[in-house]
């Protein structure tokens, strides 16, 4: 159980998909203007991530390695379509506000990246926790950013006015403000992860993922043999 916990926490802090691995930034920057959108997007992505991780982990011995990316896409797209249809049916306003970014989960690097880097090599339960951890890590970042952007940029929180009209920092609701906050969030996480007197250096080391890796190392030669 301790190992599972570590996998879960790994996705939230040490290998936070958005802030450390820098994956899936596009939707974070675009959707984090409102807390509702951020929560919806986080939930949708977490659901897709967990489900696709579990299914791909189950199928990892069946899928031929040469066509694995199309297979992953099919699995991921299935769950994205599910989420999309459910959201359109029951949460129409959220569906409208997320717009194209909901369907774009299909090509979200986090989902595909975890399928390739983790689910295709690990057991079902581990993959479940990895998906959950990564999903929570993503949701925390997008919600955290959207709280700041909505509160100071638009003066509201979940649509309720907190700061009176006329005291907003409009730039926060625009792209430059999003990038600025994104940089701040990375700085804060790196600073928080630093151990006493030691700088935190994100480790993304080799996990045997030769297909997605461009460097010519010994591993690739071995694979060729």
């Amino acid at each position: 159980m301790k190992k599972r916990m570590k996998i879960l926490l790994n996705g939230i802090f040490k290998e936070n998909p958005v802030l450390i691995l820098a994956l899936g930034c596009c939707s974070v920057l675009a959707v984090s203007v409102s807390v509702t959108g951020g929560l919806g997007m986080g939930a949708a992505l977490t659901f897709v991530l967990v489900c696709s991780n579990v299914v791909i982990s189950l199928l990892r011995n069946v899928i031929p390695s040469k066509v694995r990316i199309p297979c992953y896409i099919v699995v991921i797209a299935t769950f994205v379509t599910l989420v999309e249809m459910l959201m359109e049916a029951y949460l129409k306003s959220l569906y409208d506000s997320l717009g194209v970014f909901l369907s774009l989960i299909v090509v979200n690097c986090i989902v595909l990246g975890r399928a390739e880097m983790f689910a295709s090599k690990n057991g079902v339960v581990d993959s479940f926790f990895d998906g959950l951890g990564m999903g929570i890590g993503y949701t925390m970042v997008i919600v955290g950013m959207s709280v700041v952007r909505e509160l100071f940029g638009a003066g509201t929180l979940l649509g309720v006015r907190i700061i009176p009209e006329g005291y907003q920092l409009g730039i926060l609701t625009q792209a430059p403000g999003g990038f600025f906050l994104f940089g701040c969030a990375i700085a804060i996480l790196v600073a928080a992860m630093a151990k006493k007197g030691k700088k935190f250096e994100p480790k993304m080391g080799c996990d045997g993922n030769c297909a997605a890796c461009g460097t010519a190392c010994g591993g690739r030669k071995e694979e060729a043999k």
Binding site: L169, G170, P176
Partner: peptide, 8 residues
């Protein structure tokens, strides 16, 4: 520019 975009 930040003031211009925020408080146009």
């Amino acid at each position: 520019v930040v003031m211009f975009l925020s408080f146009t």
